[in-house]
Design a protein around this nucleic acid. Sequence first.
DNA 1: TTTTATTTTTAGATTTGTCTAAATTAATTT
DNA 2: AAATTAATTTAGACAAATCTAAAAATAAAA
Lengths: 223, 223
Amino acid sequence: MQQHTETEENYLKAIYHLSNLSISSINTSSIATSMSTSSASVTDMLKKLAEKELINYEKYKGVKITRKGEKVALNIIRKHRLWEVFLTKVLNFDWDEVHMMAEELEHVSSDELIKRLEAYLDFPKFDPHGDPIPDQTGKVEINNQMSLSKGDSGSRYTITGVGEHSSAFLKHLAKYGLKPGITVSIAEIMEFDKSMLVKVNKDKFHLSYDVSKNILVKTHGAI
Amino acid sequence: MQQHTETEENYLKAIYHLSNLSISSINTSSIATSMSTSSASVTDMLKKLAEKELINYEKYKGVKITRKGEKVALNIIRKHRLWEVFLTKVLNFDWDEVHMMAEELEHVSSDELIKRLEAYLDFPKFDPHGDPIPDQTGKVEINNQMSLSKGDSGSRYTITGVGEHSSAFLKHLAKYGLKPGITVSIAEIMEFDKSMLVKVNKDKFHLSYDVSKNILVKTHGAI
DNA sequence: TTTTATTTTTAGATTTGTCTAAATTAATTT
DNA sequence: AAATTAATTTAGACAAATCTAAAAATAAAA
C-alpha cells in the first residue's frame, strides 16, 4: 500500500487540493506554482503519475485526478490532519505551528499507526484549522464553506477554516482572535481594494482582500 | 540543526552502535554488513561524513566517530527510543512491532517536538527493549549489561535489554515470556553448541547460542 | 620475503527528482 | 487567418545514493 514516493504523494496532494478549487482540469503551471518548482519538473512527474493511473493526463490538455489517485491523496490528508490534532491537543502546540511538522509526519505513518492514533484522539472530525478528517475509506464531510471575501455587507458568518496554512498567515489571524468557531459580521466592504471592515464581538477591524480571501466561513446559523 | 540527510543519519547511527561493541576503529565491511549495502557505497558515504567532521576517516585505516558525530547519533537514538515508548505506552503496540515505525519517525521529528513528547511521556529513562534514552545534551546512562551467553551455569541474571531488535527475534522471546525485568537462571550450558538450559520461574527451556547472545542482562541483585 | 588472499577503494553506470535552455503546441491579438 | 505571445514539453545535465566490476592496498600464508 505504501507504494509511492514522498514526492509523488506531495504532487498528488497538491493536485487534489487544486481540483477542489476549480471544476475544470488542472494545468501544469498551477501545479508548478503550488509546489514551488518548475513546469518541466511537473511534466516529468505527471508522466509518472499517469503511468501509475493516479491521474489522467494528456499532453498539453491538463490533468484530472483518478478515483485511485484521490484515495491516495485523501489518505495522506487524513494522516496530516490527525497528526495536527495530536500536536495541538496532546502536545499543546499552537494551531499555527503544526502544519510543517504534520507535513513530514504524514508520509512516515502506516495505516495501522494512524488507525490507533485516531482512536486515541477519540475520532476527531476536524483538524485545528477546521478542515474535515477523511475516514479510512476516504470519505470526507464536505462542509459547505465559502470565502469570507464573497460575503455580503451586513451579514454574519462563522469561521469554519482557512485557505492558507502558513504559520505567518495563522499568526496574523491569531492577532485578531480569528479561528474556527468565531462569528464575524461584515460591517462594510470597500469598493476600491475589496478590503472589509468586520466586527467580532465588540471589536471592529479592517481585513485586506488577501486575508478575507483565505478565511473560510459558513453563513451564520444556516446549514 | 537538521542538516543531515536521512541516509547520513542512518550511517552515523550504525557507526555509533558498532563503536560501542568494539574498542578499536570500525572497518568498512562491518558497516556494510550492518547497513545491508556494499563496501563501495560505504566508502562513498565515509568520505562525505568525514568531510562534515562527523567521523575521522583515513583510507584503509577504518573509522572513528567524532564527538560531533556522536552527538548527532545520540539525538537520533533519543528520538527513536522516545517514539518507541509512545507507540507501546500510548498506542498500545507490542514491543516487537515498534522498531520499524520508530526507524521512520526518528528522522522526521524536530527537537522541539521530541522535547514535548518526552514531557508528555513523563521523562521515561528506558525504551520498551530496556535501552536507555539519551537526554537533550546527549548524556546516556551506561547500564553495565553483558550478554546472557557469557553467563555462568548456576547463576541468576535480570534481563535488561536485547542486542537485536527485529520483530522475528522479539516475537521468539515473547513466546518464552522473556523481556526486560525478567529474572533468568542458567541451569546448564552445553559444551558442543554453547546452547543453554535456563529457568524462568517454574519453567525450564532451551536457548540456542544465537538467542542467548542477543539477550542482555545484569547479574542478579548486584550493581 | 614472496606469494596469495582479503579488504578497501576507484571507475563508471543507474535511478529519482530536479534544473535550464531550446523546441513545440496552444491561445490571443491584430 | 496570420502573427505574436504564452504555456507546455523535450533534451541534456546534475546531485544523491546506490550498484558491479576492476584496481589498489593491506593482511595472511607459504
